[in-house]
Amino acid sequence: MFHRPILAAAAFAAFAGAATAQTAMPFALDWKFEGPAAPYFVAIDKGYFADVGLEVEITAGQGSLDAIPKVATGAFPVGFADINSLIKFLDQNPGAPVTAVMMVYDKPPFAVVGRKSQGVEAPKDLEGRVLGAPPPDGAWAQFPIFAAENDLDMDAITVEPVGFPTREPMLAEGEVDAVTGFSFSSFLNLVRLGVPEDDISTILMADHGVALYGNAVIVNTEFAAANPAAVEGFLEAVAMGWKDAIAEPAAAIESLVARNPAADAALEERRLALAIDANVVTDYTAANGMGTVDADRMATALEQIALTYEFQNAPDASLYFTDAYLPEGGFPLD
C-alpha cells in the first residue's frame, strides 16, 4: 500500500483546511515556464482562480512524471502530468490518493524528433541509429508502445540516456540521430539552436499507431473529496485560461514572460500555438469539449500499455480518470 510521508500529510492537511474565503491550491506543473504553461498564468492574471475563491501558485516541474508523487503525497493538491505514467504509478502504488480529472492534451505530444540529414524521417529509420532519451521523459516512457506498434527492432537501436538540458544540443551537434521528447518543445529547441527547420523530422507517436492520451490535470483525491467545489472551480478557471490562450496566444505569452523574463516571447508563442493545434484543439475536443475522455479510446490505451508493461493489478479506467468535477460535455472551446 502507498504511504504518505508525515510532513507531506501535514502539508496536505493545511491545504485541505485552507481559509474559507480563499482556498490555497498550489499547482505543480510538469515542466518549465514555457509556452504551453501560459494558460495557467492567464487564469491567475485575469482573476479566474480568484473569482472561484482560489489562491493558486504555480511551480515548475522536471518532466511529465514529476508531479505525480508530489500530488500523491499531498505535497500539492493539484498537478499536471502524463496520464500513462499515472496509470503505472497507481498500479504500483494501489490506493495512492491521486487521479486525473481533466484531460488537456487530448492528442499527446509524445514524439521522436530526428534530423533528416542523419537519415531519420520515419519510425523504421531509427534502426541502426542512436536515440537520445532522458530517463524521466514522458515520451521515452511511451517509446516501447511506439516501437511495438511499428515493429521496431530494439536491438538495432542504440539508446543513449541523456539529460534534458543536453538532449537537443546533442542532436544539433550530431552526437545522436534522434531524441524522444514533446513535439513542440524539442522542435523549437532545435530551431533555437540553429538547426534548419526543413532538416527536422517530427515523428508524432499518435500518428503512428499510439492511441494513448497525454497530460492531464491530476488531483489528490483526499483533497478533492474534502474540497469538491474548489476542484470544480480550479478546472473551470483552467479551461477559461486555455480558451483565452487559444483565442489570443500573443496575449497569453505576456502572462508567461512576466514569470520568465528570460523567455523568447516569439519562440514561446510559437510553442504554445504548436501545442494548441496538435494537442489541445482536436477533432474530439471540437465536438465533445475539453477535459473529457472517450471510454473506448481509454480501453484501447490500456491495452496498448499492457503490450509493454505487465500490470500487477487488473487495469481499471475508473481509478485513473474521473469526470466527476467536469461539467457534462466538458468545456466548450468555441
Score class of each variant (00 low, 15 high):
5 P>W: 07
6 I>C: 06
7 L>H: 13
11 A>K: 14
13 A>S: 13
14 A>W: 06
21 A>R: 14
27 F>G: 03
45 D>M: 12
58 I>L: 15
59 T>C: 05
59 T>E: 12
72 A>F: 07
86 L>H: 08
89 F>L: 04
95 G>N: 08
98 V>K: 00
104 V>F: 11
107 K>E: 11
125 D>E: 11
130 V>I: 15
134 P>K: 00
139 A>V: 05
139 A>D: 05
140 W>E: 06
140 W>M: 10
142 Q>K: 04
151 D>F: 08
163 G>H: 00
172 A>R: 00
178 A>S: 11
186 S>K: 01
186 S>G: 07
191 V>M: 14
196 P>Y: 14
198 D>A: 10
199 D>M: 14
200 I>W: 04
204 L>Y: 00
216 A>L: 11
217 V>H: 15
220 N>S: 10
221 T>Y: 10
223 F>R: 04
228 P>L: 14
228 P>Y: 13
233 G>F: 04
235 L>N: 11
246 I>R: 05
252 A>T: 05
256 L>C: 04
259 R>T: 10
261 P>W: 08
263 A>S: 12
270 R>C: 01
278 A>F: 09
278 A>T: 12
284 Y>I: 03
284 Y>N: 01
291 G>I: 01
302 L>Y: 02
304 Q>H: 06
305 I>T: 07
315 P>C: 09
320 Y>S: 05
320 Y>G: 06
324 A>Q: 11
326 L>P: 04
